[in-house]
Design a protein around this nucleic acid. Structure first.
Lengths: 229, 229
DNA sequence: CGTGCGCTTGACTTTTTTCAATAAAGGTGG
DNA sequence: CCACCTTTATTGAAAAAAGTCAAGCGCACG
């Protein structure tokens, strides 16, 4: 997995004057979490936010009977928990390390003070939150307007865009986690993967590899213009 | 319905120096939309954002086969379309006037220029987007982790908190729109309302009034700790 | 070498949607 | 003020999608 080792490599801090980067370095606190550790909990007091240096973290909601919905999965360079800094005093969800995780932690008050002083940092934060909002809009659209096969198709196509070997993307998480990300359960995901394979849309490759055989149909599925056999 | 007639009454602009309020007044463009008019469309170029002066607007996504999911319903004093200003060049959803609508329109570039100059405006925007994000988090949680009766119960309780006569809130939108807001369809909503009535949780009053008879049970439903008979 | 976790599959249940028909409500023009 | 027409709401029966429960497999890890 890739790593980020300097604050100036964080997209959120891109384009900031050196002085501001130095100020950020002044307030940051490095933290480490073992795989499976909870970084923060839903409702917990938000004293600051994190930026991933290395590892992966999932941010999720839990229902009383234990079902989880993953809201985000973040990797190196990505901030999380930042919305709580400017509003609620509490985190609106859980965060848990999916693998060994190292973060920079930015304390709320000190960070807000920097934002107030630097318009370009403020603009970066605004763009960041706006992007986050747009992603949520898409997640809501998926959950409400698409069936699980459509969500899965969309996700596979998304993965293939992100990755080099675009016709055979590798799942970056377990299938159980993927189910939670898509708003369903492992059994359902497993069945749909099987149906897609039967219909010749995909082929399960080595390990977590999934070969996309029929992009066209996957795209129609993702748009809700077609159903699975 | 209430109205907002001065920019300084907009919560988003609360606490700004007079000078900034004046600057905002300098760039604002009043607009009017008849009931049913589309204010902007999904994917459309975002040249600025709106604040509602009077009336109601719904922001929603559409699936290819016509089902809609309402993301927000905004009334006087509330901004909409503002996330597009700081990021995407395009609106991520549709907006349509549910009744005669008057807005202030803030052009993108001019507004961003003001944000850059005024840290308190920037902070207000950050808080606004953060609040928005938190709401979406809850919507996602509802859609994914709760069944329709739970979402409805939560919404009824929410309405009763907002309104004066708290035991008999009035729906502010049609039931069809409410269904879309809850991520379902009118038939399903109708049936669940009927079941809740049969079970003595609520009572349909005059017009759009819904009397809450058993708060306790509604709260359990909303938390997913109970199911409907 | 066994234990456990992740994954799959089958049978069954529940929830929600779809389709269709009808009833009630609301606004408009005569 | 009323007749008319569109929109909104309700109800039933049937279908579809997803979830639950339970069993079993395979592979990694201790």
């Amino acid at each position: 997995m890739k790593k980020i080792s300097h604050i100036s490599d964080v997209p959120l801090f891109q384009g900031l004057p050196k002085q501001q980067i130095a100020a950020l370095e002044g307030i940051v606190i490095p933290r480490k979490y073992a795989k499976g550790k909870v970084v923060f909990s839903d409702g917990e007091d938000a004293t600051g936010f994190h930026v991933v240096m290395s590892g992966i973290v999932k941010v999720y909601k839990l229902s009383p009977d234990g079902k989880e919905q993953i809201l985000h999965i973040f990797g190196p360079g990505e901030p999380f928990g930042e919305a709580a800094v400017f509003e609620g005093r509490s985190f609106p969800a859980y965060a848990e390390a999916l693998e060994a995780l190292a973060t920079w932690f930015f304390p709320r008050q000190a960070f807000v003070a920097l934002v107030v002083k630097d318009p370009s940092l403020a603009l970066n934060m605004l763009a960041d939150l706006s992007r986050r909002l747009r992603r949520f809009t898409n997640l809501i659209e998926d959950l409400s307007l698409k069936e699980v096969p459509g969500r899965l198709a969309a996700h596979l196509l998304y993965l293939s865009e992100q990755q080099a070997d675009s016709d055979a993307p590798i799942l970056d998480i377990t299938k159980g986690q993927l189910a939670s990300l898509l708003g369903t359960i492992p059994e359902t995901l497993s069945r749909i993967l099987a149906r897609m394979t039967r219909d010749g849309l995909i082929e399960a490759g080595e390990g977590r590899e999934v070969r996309l055989l029929d992009r066209e149909s996957l795209e129609e599925l993702a748009r809700g213009e077609r159903r699975l056999g």
